[in-house]
């Protein structure tokens, strides 16, 4: 009955273990849930509430605050066209118009084949490469109409499968803290002393590594 796959359940446990308080894992776990299902389902929120020891209402509160979490299904490729100033100065509106025409949906819509969701986005931090867009948070720079058409063809044809995972997966390289190297997270209330190097900083063999 659990939402998370066995693999993601153990990933969730690993992530929770990195924080002094479980609740801090909420956003990372919502990402894991979205990576698994492509969007954040109610079942996922209920299970995350259990995992981080809060109510589903609070998970919904956090989840709905953040733009990246989709609470209904979106296309395999979420195409976010930046509309903020630098991109707007470089023709973002025209790019959006073209994209709407090419995909046959308005911004916010999903193509009938479920492949593309087109959206207008705010500044994506690639302002010098305007107009820019992201497909599942992977950049495409200085995109013109032809470039957009080529991108759509490539995505639909699977030519970019290696670079661009389906919606929900952001980073494909994850942090993993080896058990023998980890200091470990401690609840703040369990600590009331300075870390050891602050207490006795001198002469501890520094710099000999």
């Amino acid at each position: 009955m659990s939402f998370f796959s066995e693999e993601n359940r153990s990933l969730a446990r690993e992530i929770i273990g990195r924080y002094p308080k479980r609740r801090s894992a909420m956003i990372p776990l919502l990402h894991v849930a979205q990576a698994q299902a492509g969007w954040v389902t109610e079942e996922a929120m209920v299970e995350i509430a259990e995992l981080v020891d809060t109510t589903p209402a609070e998970v919904l509160g956090t989840c709905s605050f953040y733009e990246m979490f989709k609470r209904e299904p979106v296309g395999k490729y979420l195409v976010n066209i930046c509309a903020t100033m630098s991109c707007a100065l470089a023709g973002a509106a025209e790019l959006m118009e073209h994209a709407e025409e090419r995909l046959g949906v308005r911004a916010g819509g999903t193509t009938p084949d479920g492949l593309f969701t087109l959206a207008s986005a705010e500044c994506q931090a690639a302002c010098t490469e305007a107009p820019c867009l992201q497909v599942n948070y992977r950049y495409r720079y200085r995109v013109d109409a032809d470039g957009f058409d080529q991108l759509v063809d490539d995505l639909a044809g699977g030519a970019l499968d290696d670079e661009i995972p389906p919606h929900g997966v952001t980073a494909r390289v994850r942090q993993h803290i080896p058990a023998d190297r980890a200091v470990g997270a401690v609840p703040p209330e369990a600590v009331n002393e300075p870390p050891v190097w602050m207490a006795a900083p001198a002469g501890n063999g520094a710099g000999s590594a």
């Binding site: 109510t55 209402a57 919904l60 509160g61 709905s64 605050f65």
Partner: peptide
């Protein structure tokens, strides 16, 4: 201690 209502959306 019953956080069953919360702000949602933004």
């Amino acid at each position: 201690g019953d956080p069953l209502i919360d702000f949602t959306e933004r």
